[in-house]
Nucleic acid binder design. Structure first.
Lengths: 220, 220
DNA sequence: AAAAATTATAATGTCGACAATATATGCCTG
DNA sequence: CAGGCATATATTGTCGACATTATAATTTTT
């Protein structure tokens, strides 16, 4: 599930990953305060490594820190989610464009094979696709852009926030088969090296997701 | 010159700002190693605050850190600059679109006034425009998007890297009057609430800048 | 009694020392 | 003499204690 090998070397790494997981999955509730002392006893490390972990979380925008006051887990808001998707639209649209330019033929073939395997599972009625499959797909395109800044902002930053929203607002939801078709079209555009179309399709794909989520938020 | 009031509260803040300045302006050379001990004596603070500052710089992508080894200032490369401009194109294009949607009439009027004042200076042959004027313009549009993620990624992250490239590769350059016209067109589109056009013009504006820079790198 | 000022408390910010790791040096072996 | 291994050194990672700041409680004053 964790595609990029983010292996923890130091204690601060481990604590950072653990804290991030707990925040994304809601074990540590959104909006709650992060006490350095409390966490240092809970995770059995010194305050210094907790501080470092919290600082890293702050740069991911998973927590907000105020000087001499402390850090709080970010609060989830509909506007925040919308804004997230606006940035995703811009960034992943560009990623699709660059993927059409820079991915190797082999990488594209791999991605097509991945999509085929997903199709089999969707066909069998497995709801597996939604989470891991979607993540895989978007992740491949982003890395396929070969643009380090793009990769970093999305993979290290926004995706964790997106997952936090998904998990905590219970967006397991549908849009499985339709999203699958959209994925297929995007990959085709990339295979044809059609940058313009790849970007446009990706932007619309993300826009649809956003609209779908907005609808859910307003109804439920 | 510093539009957003990034006021330093703590020592770590001050050290972070100072280090960032020294790196961006090349006082600390690109690619050089950042020794914690050395810096702690030089800046007269403890290693802890140096570490925190370096960590923050790492998340701005101004330095790269390896566990148990240390941190180095990033190396400047033509590819890196190109990649930066690709991300800018995507992000600032979206910012222009959102600015056309979300800026208040007053904010737009202010921005037009700003452009007028810039025009006067360009007309008088002052080369003032290039640096501060360009920064001001882009900054206003980004903040006008009202999208916190967008603002943060650009203002806290990419812009400092862009400035580092500009300063250290000596991109004081021309493109003044033509860029000014492009700015004018973008503001007009925003004033007309034409999201589509605003985004397209901003993307082309940044693309032109990129091409201009590429040409310089290849020639000189 | 209400509001302001002051003290008390508890958190974050900062520091210097110790532990663990990576690199450099020198030694031993083939 | 070359290559690998062991040691030495220096740097980063981690820790607990102290300093400083913000918040809460208490007292004082109007």
């Amino acid at each position: 599930m964790l595609v990029k090998s983010e292996q923890a070397i130091t204690n601060a790494d481990r604590t950072f990953f653990q804290l991030r997981k707990d925040i994304v999955e809601g074990v540590i509730p959104a909006g709650s305060k992060l006490s350095e002392m409390e966490l240092s006893t809970k995770y059995e490390v010194s305050r210094a490594v907790i501080r470092e972990a919290i600082n890293r979380l702050a740069t991911c925008h998973l927590v907000e820190r105020k000087a001499n006051v402390g850090a709080r887990v970010v609060a989830l808001s509909p506007e925040g989610l919308i804004q997230l998707y606006q940035v995703r639209e811009a960034l992943e649209g560009m990623a699709a464009r660059l993927a059409a330019r820079n991915m190797s033929d082999d990488e594209i073939a791999d991605m097509q094979a991945l999509l085929d395997s997903h199709f089999d599972k969707v066909k069998d009625g497995q709801s597996y696709y939604q989470e891991a499959g979607d993540v895989d797909f978007h992740y491949r395109i982003v890395t396929g852009s070969k643009n380090d800044h793009l990769i970093s902002v999305l993979v290290d930053g926004l995706y964790h926030l997106v997952r936090m929203y998904r998990v905590q607002l219970g967006m397991a939801g549908p849009r499985v088969s339709t999203a699958f078709d959209e994925h297929r079209h995007i990959v085709n555009a990339i295979a044809n090296r059609d940058e313009e179309l790849a970007e446009m399709l990706m932007r619309r794909h993300i826009l649809y997701s956003k609209n779908n989520i907005e609808k859910k938020l307003n109804n439920g």
